[in-house]
Every structure is written in C-alpha cells, then in structure tokens.
Design a protein around this nucleic acid. Structure first.
Lengths: 217, 217
DNA sequence: CCGGGTTGGGGGTTTTTCCCCCATACCCAC
DNA sequence: GTGGGTATGGGGGAAAAACCCCCAACCCGG
C-alpha cells in the first residue's frame, strides 16, 4: 500500500490546514509536510520524500518558477502541481516551462484538485483553466524548454530587482521599500537605478505599468 | 444546544472546502452555506440564517466593503468576520468602518480562525495583524468603531475623486495626474486631501491598496 | 580572476509632497 | 435663497522624497 505523499506549499496557514484535512481524508493520500515559502519548500522537500508538491506560485521569497526548477532537480524528484489563484495561460506556460506537471486554479472544486494530484502522481499532466486559449501550446512548451532565447531584448531582472520593482509599483517610497526589505534606502536607490538602466523604467508610473504587464501585482 | 452557524464566502472553492472541513470538525460550529462572490453571499445570507459570515474581501463583483454594509443591515444581522490575504491596516480600517466585527489574515493559523469565529459570535471584535505600523491610525479606527459600530461607513467618493485616486494609485505624480485630467496640480492636491480626509489614504501605497481592493486598476 | 548582484555611503541638487491660508463657481437640497 | 458639497484654482513655505554623481566592500559563479 503506497499512498501518495503530498507536500503542501502555500503561505496561507488557513489554506494549508484546509488542504491537509481534505487530503488526509483520502484513503490514498497523506500529507508529509508543509511549507510557507519557497525556501522552506525546498528544505522540506529535501528532508522528507514526497511524490507530489502542491505549490502556490505566489509566495514570499524566490519566484515560484525558481522553486519549481529546483524541486524537479531533486533525486528522487517530486511531481509539482501548481495551485494558484491566477486563472491565466501565461502563468500556466511559465509554470510548465519551469517543470511543473500540473496547474490548477484555487477556484477549482476540491474533487478536481484531488483528481489532479492523482493524475500528476501517475505521470500525467493536469491542466485546469477556465479561460480558453493556449490549448495545444502545451506540447510546444515542452520543446521550447530552456533553450530558446525568445527575443531577449530586455535584460533579465534579478530576484531582488523584481522584489524592489514590485514594492515600488505598489506605491511605496524608496524608504518604505527599504524598510520592508530591511535594507538601506541607498540599496533601493541602486536597484532602482538598475531598473531604470535595464528597462528604461524611470517614473513610478512606468514601474507600475511594467509590473502590471509582468503580472507582479 | 445552539451551534454557531457559519456562512463561508470566498471565491476559491478549494479554500471553501478546506474551511468547511475545519469548521464542521468543531463541535460548536456548523456551515450553513457557501458563496463565491458578493452577490451570492447576500442572497445566501437572505436564504439561510447565519451567525457569522466568513468573508473574503477580494471577490468578483461588488467591493467587499459594500457586501459588508449590506450584510450587517440584514435582520437578524450576522456578524461579519473578514478573512483576507491582505495583512494591512488600511484594509482593516475600511472593513471595520463598513461594519465588520473581525479581521483575520489567511496567514493566520487555523486555531486562530476558530477562535476569531467564537469571539465575534459572542459579540466581540477580533483583529489579527502581524504588521505593527500605523499605530495611531489603528487607535482611531477602534475609537470610531466603538462609537458607531456599523454606522460610520466611509463617505462615498465623487467620480472625480475616483479618477484622481486611480491615477495616483497607478504611480502618477500629482503633476502627471493634473496633466492627464487637464487641471491644475492644485486641484489634484485638493482631491488628494479629500481622499486623505475621507478614507485615511495618506501615502501613495495606501491609495494603491485601496484602489486594488475597490477594483479600480 | 573578473563580472554581476547586493549591500552601503557621501554629498549635493531638484522634484514632489504637504501644510496652512485663500478664492470662485456650480449644483442641489432644505 | 442660504448652506453644503464638489470642482476648480492659487500663494507661499517647510519638509520629504527622489535623483544624481561619485565611491567601496562582499560574495558567488563562470
């Protein structure tokens, strides 16, 4: 009897508790751990073997895609099922590119979630979006995987730069962002300068628009 | 033997399922209904009597504050416990002003949530925020709340004020907003002052958060 | 070892915000 | 018609924030 070992990674404790009850209520599943951010997810995944990692893309710390990439490089590697509130094909695409095996929105019914866990456990790919489009792109996604530059005009942003960008786009002053990240205002100014150099984002309104397009908000 | 009748209002079905299991597992609580948006919440609340409405502020449809205001006007009126992912005193303030009896973030542990339900059911006010800032403003909120529990709704914004709010929330400076609306910067300053007076939205980050909650962006 | 990222600083200017005061004009309700 | 709320605009000054140049240390990966 091998039940599906699930690791829950979500920053909302209430949701984790709910998911745990839901999963533990299944005869063929068990919860082997919980994590509240990306780093904790990786360390938990290193401590306990799991078959499926139920992962929220939007957690504090490193971007969800980076967490996925590291998870699937583990040995033995768990399958990653992304559980997110973003009903968005762009998110889906980046998640699959990073190595996720499934993508389900939080709006989905619980039976769907359980079904998705079983599908990805058995090696399948589960995708659940209410918004249409991008259907057969999934295949294409596999091929593109990790090699195509995809018109790399904008220089890639570091994680830290993305964090700073997000805070500033949300209307925080340099000082407020510095406090949030527990660094000096000078550091924020430096990051902001780099954002300006790399992407031409000068005013706060520029930062806001870019953040919206990049779906950072 | 009267158990606490809870109505769950959240647009994430998975979370609802989790909450239902969590609550049903308590001997003194029962779930009498679920809703996925503001309108459904109101109709459900009209159909079944409930003691506590567990409400997510960020749902499709009307703003969460409007839903709260209508809920507390029902007879008999349920107590509203806001369950949100926004760990933010500004959100707290608007929720309490709208008539909520409690505010708990989704990051909170499940035992805290259960405790909060019991507190508001017994007529208390439960507030849970991890962020310490904005102290004097919090006091103000509590004061207003004590004086006029459900009455002190935020004054409605004029159309123009909403426009200004939107532009400023998008990161535009006063001058940029003035240019957009073809008015003087002094006019923007005046509107901004009104926003500050009416809703306590002082910093640009405050404006941003409120605009997000009000779905203006 | 070099380059990029992250951190932090000195020291200055310019921009923006914020605060008080004020005014006119419109519309709507009492 | 008088008062209240909204929208518009202003003067002037203090404070805060942003912006600009320079610099430097540390760490890490190729």
């Amino acid at each position: 009897m091998s039940s599906i070992r699930v690791l829950i990674a979500d920053d909302h404790a209430v949701l984790r508790a709910g998911l745990r009850m839901l999963i533990e209520a299944q005869s063929d599943m068990e919860v082997v751990g919980e994590a509240a951010d990306g780093l904790e997810t990786l360390s938990r995944a290193g401590e306990v073997e799991s078959d499926v990692v139920l992962l929220d893309l939007s957690m504090p710390g490193p971007p969800g895609t980076a967490t996925i990439e590291r998870l699937v490089r583990l040995v033995p590697s768990p399958r990653v099922l992304v559980l997110t509130m973003h009903d968005d094909p762009v998110y889906l695409r980046t998640a699959l590119l990073a190595g996720a095996s499934g993508y389900i929105v939080k709006k989905a019914a619980d039976v769907e979630l359980l079904s998705a866990i079983r599908v990805v456990y058995h090696g399948g790919t589960f995708v659940n979006l209410t918004r249409p489009g991008e259907d057969q792109r999934s295949d294409e996604v596999r091929h593109v995987h990790r090699d195509s530059p995809a018109a790399g005009q904008p220089k890639p942003l570091s994680q830290r730069e993305v964090e700073v960008l997000r805070l500033l786009a949300q209307g925080h002053t340099n000082q407020e962002a510095a406090d949030r990240l527990a660094v000096s205002i000078k550091t924020i100014e430096t990051h902001r300068k780099r954002l300006s150099d790399k992407l031409g984002l000068k005013s706060r309104a520029d930062l806001f628009r870019f953040a919206v397009e990049a779906r950072l908000l």
